[in-house]
Structure formats: C-alpha cells, structure tokens
Write a protein that binds this DNA or RNA. Structure first.
Lengths: 344, 344
DNA sequence: AATTAGCACTCAGTAAGAGAGAGTGCTAAC
DNA sequence: GTTAGCACTCTCTCTTACTGAGTGCTAATT
C-alpha cells in the first residue's frame, strides 16, 4: 500500500515527466514550492516506489521515469481531468456551428480538432457498414439495361450499385423482386443479406419470377456489400515530433501500423462503452509498444457505434487528452443526432 | 557540349549513385570492367562535368554526386527504360486478373503494386468529380418526406444525397422537376449545375411548380456537390527508409505534405498528357525539395483523367520507375475501359 | 524514528585529439 | 592525351578525459 506522500510524489513525478520528457531527479522535485522534503528523503521514497515497480531508471544513476505500472496507477488513481480554457471551449463550439453537408465532414472536423488540441494523432473509426440494418431497397432503372440498386440503412447511410441486368430479365421483374425483398428483409443486418437471400428467397423468387437464375445472380451481385473500412486520421505527423520518436525505425513501424487497416481495427477493438486507455504493451500489437491509446465511442443513430481515438507516446498528457476526447466525442454524437432529427 | 566519354561517365556515375547512395569516386569508376581509363583521367573528366554544373561534391575531397542539372540531363538524354523480368510481368498481370467489384479497388491495387515494385510511395489522384458530366438524375422517394437524389455521371459514377423535402412540396412535384432537369441538363459538367439552375430554371420552375421557392432550395441543396478529394497513397513509409530521410524533420515535413490535400493537388498539377518528371526543386513546394516526382495519367471513360504518381528521393531508380508507372497506368486504363464495356 | 547532510560512485554526454581511409587536384612523366 | 605519384583535405571512428546530474549509503541531526 502506498503512503500519502508516495502517492503525492508519484503524481508529481509523472506530471513532471509528461511535460519534460526527461528523467526526473530528487533534487528537481525537492526544489518545487509545494514540496518541503530534502532530496535525500525524496530519494528514499523514490527508491521504494521503484522497488514496488512504479518507477524505473534509464541507467544506474539517472533520474526516474514512470514504468507502465506507474502510468497505469497514475491513470487509475491519481489523475484529475484537465480543464479547458474558456477560449478553447469557445473555439471548439464555434467549429461545430458550421453547416456540414456530409456526415463525413463532421467526423473529419472532429478528428482535426482532436489532433490540433492534443498535439497527438487522432483516429476515427466509422461504424461497420455491415452491422447496419436494411431499411429500404430501391431499384432505379437508368438508360438501356442499366440500373442503380439503392440500399438505405437504418442509420441513414445510402449505398448504391450500378448494375447491368441481362436482357433476359425485364426491369419490371426486378422492381417486383425488390418489392418482395423490401417487405421481408426490413431491419435485417447487411451482413446477413446474402444468407437470407439464399435460404429464404430461392423458392419465393422461383415462383414469382421468370428467369429466376438470372435474377438470383443479379441480386447476389448487387447485395454484395464489402465494407469500406472507414478510417480517418488527422495529425499523423504530430506524434512523430515527440522526442520518443527520434528513431527512424520506430517511425516506420508506426506508419506501417497506420497503413494496415486490419491492424488498426484490431488495435481499436475495445469492449463496448466508456473510455478505454491502453498503455504501452497493453496494446498487443507490434510497433506501438511505446504508445498509449485512448479510445471512446460516438454513436450514430440509436445503437451504431464509431470509435474516436488518440494515439500518443506513453508519456502522454492524459488529463488533457481525456477531457478533450470526452468533450469532442459528446459534441460529435450530439451533432450527429441533431442531424438525424432535422432529417425526419 | 559534352563529349562521348563525358556522357558515358555521367551515365555511369548517376547509375552508380542511384544504387549506392554514396558519393562516387574516380577509383571506383575506374575499376569497372567496362571502363579502361585510369582514376586520374576520370578525375579530370569529372572535374569538367562539375565545372559545367552536372556534378557536385559533398565536401572538398569527397566523391561526386549528381546535381539537379545532372539528374535532369540524365533523365532527358541518358536513360534507357528498364526491362521488367518475365516473373514481374506475370505477377503484375495476375494481380489484374482478379475480379474487382469497385473501381476504387482497382485503383488501390494499382497503387499497391506500384509502391511494392518501386519501393517508393505511390499516389493516385482520382478524377475531379466536378469535372464529370451529368448523365442522369433521379429522385427516389423513401419513407415519409425523405428521398434520395441520385446523380449519375457520364463516367458511370453515382452520387447520392438523402434529402428531406418540406411538407409544402409534393413528391410528384419533385419528380416532375427532376424530369425537366434531366432533359435540359444532360451532359452539363457538375460544377456548372448550380449556375445553370439559377440562371435558366428559375422561370421554368416558377411556371411549372407550385411552391417554387421551396423547390429551388431543395434542388440547390441536393445538387451542391463538394468534391471529395480522391487521393490514395500506398507505401507512405517506403520513402522514409531511403537513406536521405534519416533526418526526422524531413520526414515530418514530407508527411505534412501528404496530409494536406491541397498541397498534393497543387504538386501533381501537371500539363496534360504524357509522363512528367519533376526533380528536386523543380517541385515548387516546401518539404519535397529533395524528392523527385514522376506522374502520368490514366483515363476513366473517354476524357476524364486521373493521375498516377510515384514520389521518391532525387536519387530515384528512374528507368525502373518510368517503366513501371507506364505499364501500370496503361493496365489501369485498360481495365477501367474493359469494365465500362462490360457495363454497357 | 524520521529526516537530512555528506560523500563516494556511476553513467550519459560532450569535447578534443589521433589515425585511418577515401578522395581530390596538380605536376611531371609516359 | 593519359597516367603515376604525391601532398593535401575532409569525414568517420575510436579513445580519452572531463563534467554534471543523479544515485545509494552512512552517520549526524531533529
């Protein structure tokens, strides 16, 4: 169990290291106005904290640096959320007052604010398209034997496919099929569409539609939805100005993580709800052992969730980032639901 | 005017420097099997080439390095396109044999091949949406007073907008309007839509539609198309493994260029047609003074152009990159037009 | 019993110097 | 015109020495 004084010193040390990025020595702590102990006393306490695993030294006679356990303790018990200045809050609110013609724009602006105000890299993960539910399908005939299949989801997202239908099928037939689908597949998640199509509609279609095989192929093609991983970054280079990224190899492996979309999905896969903080090796992924990741979710519509994240060095300004990510994800959710209201 | 031997030596030196990234000395040139001059002779020639501005030294007694003028001369007069091995050609062709459900996928694959085979960073710039021409508009009513405005362009791109129409307007009215637009605005470039709407349709609509003001607002909103800058990168970190990017500040300023979409548009703005090579400071843009950029175009449909580019260090394997960018942009164009054929 | 002063010790970082190696320019010989 | 020879220059690397920040431990002080 840690004493009051140890808690106090640990907090000071982490705070100090977060801004300085230099190992913190006993003397520099002792010189602070709010500390009345001599360097020797502090050394003793720090030695104890090190023994318990909260601190580390970079070499035998260096100052101390928080260990991952130290950061974890700091984040769990010692940190108080930062306040944003009035000016900052004003700037943020103003940024959301603009009129956004696309949902995407709103997400991009949020990412930009987040990276701008934290000075780290912001990552936005859109909701998985495949998780959305079908609200409406419509087939629109264009010229010749081309048409657009329009798929509207419950959260208001619209997908379209240009399809060419073989001359064996009549446009009216397609419309007829789509009407049947509309009736039967309402609120079915998109990832189930193919399966349902195969299992339930073979017979229905065979009975109702001439040229049934052609129709099935057409439907299969137009309902094959492949998830465009909606990942957006802002301030990718910000994180690289941090002193821990002097090493070019670290930069490269981090950028590789950013480039591989699968890796990012995996990284950001968190238990639902609330805010999550992963420190250093808690991120089970090569290339970001020295980074911390803070994530939370924003919602689009009633249940569909996207993820907001900030990635920075382990030595991250946790209080400030936590506050900012909280404020911004809430504003984003609010703006998105306002949009939905207006659209009704 | 350069002598035969000077041409020959300049070529050797650039080739050598491209692979080694080290200043080239007279001795190492002299040792080659295809060179029969002594180091001293070569030194004399190199000194002349330096005087003429084709070569530089990194310090007083170092070997020589091509100057930008030297690279320019090399690119314009000395370089012969590289051959790809049969295996490489096979790999490339195979990659295109896959079935692509989206045009975007095809573009991504091209970018990946390009960065993979060159080991530099590939940049793909999609055609400007606003340059496309209107082929077809359709309004589809969804539930309530919502609908989708579908805009199909001549190159087969489909845009959609979910719109909420005020209860003052009837869905039939909208359909009526859209029919008029369809007739009159066929093949009008998207960027002119708003203007045409304002100039020509005020009167037409006023005559034909009740609640004309509401209708205008609705149309304005749904035809307001903001260009989603279609930029795609592959192998962003590849260029950073080049020895000239040891300096972290260079990395940061390069990544900043990548992040700012305007900058990239500006950078890749080349006179139309053919292949363009910009060496070092010929790129009038901060942050890439030490890079070379090779661009060419690919076409979608009859006239719409996208840009393919490779960005690497000035010391770039020009012959190979030129060949690859040529082969791949042609394959891309071919695949895209095949798709179009099939879609007819 | 807790705190602190004092001191020997460790280690990173910097600076200076020495030597090796690669390369040059110039002169004189071939 | 070409080349051998040589003095010279500059980078790079390795050593050595020194400084400064910081530590742990012991003994004295409160």
């Amino acid at each position: 169990m840690l004493t009051e004084r140890q808690l106090f010193l640990l907090q000071l040390l982490v705070n100090d290291y977060i801004v300085s990025a230099e190992p913190v020595g006993s003397r520099s702590i002792s010189k602070r106005d709010d500390v009345h102990y001599s360097p020797a006393t502090i050394r003793n306490e720090l030695a104890d904290l090190e023994e318990m695993g909260y601190l580390e030294k970079t070499h035998l006679s260096s100052g101390r640096v928080p260990s991952e356990k130290g950061y974890r303790f700091y984040v769990d018990h010692l940190l108080s959320p930062a306040m944003l200045s009035d000016l900052e809050m004003k700037n943020i609110r103003d940024a959301y007052r603009r009129k956004f013609s696309e949902t995407e724009e709103l997400i991009h602006v949020t990412a930009e604010l987040l990276s701008e105000f934290t000075n780290y890299t912001a990552i936005m993960l859109g909701p998985e398209l495949l998780e959305m539910k079908l609200k409406h399908i419509q087939f629109v005939r264009l010229s010749g034997n081309k048409g657009v299949m329009i798929i509207v989801t419950d959260s208001g997202h619209v997908e379209n496919r240009v399809v060419t239908f073989p001359s064996e099928i009549k446009a009216e037939d397609i419309e007829k099929i789509v009407n049947i689908l509309n009736e039967k597949l309402n609120m079915v998640p998109l990832y189930q569409l193919q399966k349902r199509l195969n299992e339930e509609f073979r017979d229905v279609l065979r009975r109702n539609v001439s040229n049934y095989e052609h129709a099935m192929t057409l439907l299969r093609d137009s309902l094959e939805i492949n998830d465009p991983e909606q990942i957006f970054y802002s301030g990718k280079s910000k994180i690289l100005s941090q002193p821990e990224f002097q090493d070019i190899d670290k930069v490269i492996s981090l950028l590789n993580v950013f480039e591989g979309k699968d890796l990012i999905r995996e990284l950001m896969n968190m238990p639902p709800g609330g805010m999550h903080i992963r420190i250093g090796k808690e991120n089970k992924l090569n290339g970001i052992e020295d980074c911390s990741l803070i994530t939370t979710t924003y919602s689009v519509g009633s249940e569909l969730l996207g993820t907001v994240a900030v990635i920075g060095p382990k030595r991250m300004a946790y209080p400030r980032v936590i506050t900012l990510i909280d404020v911004l994800s809430n504003l984003l959710t609010k703006s998105l639901s306002d949009r939905k209201e207006n659209n009704k």
